[in-house]
Amino acid sequence: MIELRHLVKTYGDVAVVRDVSLSAPEAAVTVLLGPPGSGKSTILRMINRLIPADSGSVWIDDEDTAAIHPEALRRRIGYVIQGVGLFPHWNVARNIATVPALLGWPRKRIAARVEQLLDMVNLPPDRFAEKRPSELSGGQAQRVGIARALAADPSLLLMDEPFSALDPVTRRDLQQAFRRIQRDTGKTVVFVTHDLEEALLLGDQVALLRDGKLIQHGPPLQLLEHPADDFVADYFGGAAAGLRRLTLLSAASRAVPGEAGGARLPAQASLHDALEAMLSRGTESVALEGGGVVTLKALLA
């Protein structure tokens, strides 16, 4: 678990982060959401001490990070940024091996770990290990970036707009891959984005920031259904909030016994997926894998 206590950062006269306190639960994705200039990236960089805080503290598993040597701290934390920042003069395998090499792992263990990670991010090692970053597509490069951040098996992962520069299809792909990896590995993740859809899709917790201040913090559904003020309500889409809500509710939660025609939706599908299936098929009910159907009536309830 990570706890931010009363973090403050000021550049000259400009307060970038104003007294932010927040805790990010274990094995969950906490999204820092907000418009550009809201201080979310600064907060992220204060966690791994790339930016020193003016006051306040960051605690990881009840240990004050100020007491840890910054380089040692960073080697325990995975870090993924928007530009990926792969080292262009090293091949993929060596890029991934950066932190294990810094930690002095034996060569064999590093090689095995690199192979395992490439498999995890769906890049076949025999095709990708020797490639140079310039030979990768944007999506492939960011997959390598994620593998590199996970290399030394850190319990905590910091991600700063990792998917913003990608095209929509690739972005969707990577978001799903990331969600799967996060569930499988149980990492604690702090994720910065300005993209609401991404926040709703990936976040277990969402913290909405504005002008360096924490406005509201909680599960996405809570922010959607009980916005603390007009800014939150506005940010969460006003009129489109109803549709957004459907993406956060699982179809299985509204399922009733019965049968329906057409292909079955996956068990973890959202109500949004179910509505889309009904619209495209022109039906009023769809079946779920593992039994049960969702009807239009149940959806509207």
């Binding site: 790339l50 380089e71 701290l73 960073r74 920042g85 262009p88």
Partner: peptide, 15 residues
């Protein structure tokens, strides 16, 4: 030199 690799390197704990 591009800023991203440098930030990534520092972020991963290189001195």
């Amino acid at each position: 030199v591009d800023a991203a690799p440098l930030e990534a390197a520092a972020g991963m704990g290189m001195s």
